[in-house]
Design a protein around this nucleic acid. Sequence first.
DNA 1: CCTCCCGCTGAACAGATTGTCCAGCGAATA
DNA 2: TATTCGCTGGACAATCTGTTCAGCGGGAGG
Lengths: 159, 159
Amino acid sequence: MAIDQLDGRILVLLAREPRIGVLEMSRRLGVARGTAQARLDRLQSGGVIRGFGPQVDPAALGYPVTAFATLQIRQGQGADVRAHLASVPEVLELHTTTGSGDMLCRLVARSNADLQRVIDRVVAIDGIVRAATAIVMENPVPLRIIPLVEQAARDAEGG
Amino acid sequence: MAIDQLDGRILVLLAREPRIGVLEMSRRLGVARGTAQARLDRLQSGGVIRGFGPQVDPAALGYPVTAFATLQIRQGQGADVRAHLASVPEVLELHTTTGSGDMLCRLVARSNADLQRVIDRVVAIDGIVRAATAIVMENPVPLRIIPLVEQAARDAEGG
DNA sequence: CCTCCCGCTGAACAGATTGTCCAGCGAATA
DNA sequence: TATTCGCTGGACAATCTGTTCAGCGGGAGG
């Protein structure tokens, strides 16, 4: 999907001030409201903007510990393992990957001790041959998208 | 921060229908608008809800390839590497971790070929001793929070 | 060179929502 | 028993949304 500079500015603006309305947005962008609305609709229907779901902080919910687990899966057990991991609330994300491991998942826990409980639950299925866990200590770059959006906007328009 | 069942329902509702307003929310929850508003304010000021930024899909922006890179950092070069990685738009996320590697980062690229360019750029700094990359093939569990919210709500209230 | 199509502008409208008050009520607490 | 707290239900003005309209300009195609 094509992204021009105006689209880029819309995304940046929304990221910076999510509560902003279409009207205020059009004012900041210096375009007519209809234009802002049309662009926003296009971004949404085009799938660039998936939604505006609340960004919930696991730490504030009482889960301050984050970890990444690399799982090695027994041949043909992938589906079972996926279903099992999906049923664990502390599994926030799961990917199947190339490379040494077969899956990578993001976990959270109430404490380092609690992480053991979570991991035990994660590996409590036959399909998992081996699990390697890395506990997150710092998060120098929190999940972000703005720089990429700006890059994409530049690329698409004489950048 | 304490989360009761009502808070949990608010978060679930917001996740399911982000465009919903406080008024409609109060209707669905069966409480007064003031109550819904107060709860929402509390969740936001308490840090549970960080914000409502747009969820942008990198794939729709033209970056359909995701990968995780495990980086081994030379002693004392951490700060330099962090700054360097933060300057790469395709680095969506960066963590420092325990375990064999020292850092874990999430990358996106326009194609598998383009991923090579991204990785080259990532490792183009002395501080990185070794890099192991795992390309994401599937994403059986996209980043989610609802199950954890429900868990937290149960825990906090006679669950 | 001309015509059509598309996107943007500026405006208008009714309907709905927000932010913000208020007083009353019930339960838990000191 | 007196106080504090959260929830209810209602009110207000101000604002925003969804939608429609006609006009304008540039680019594409003929």
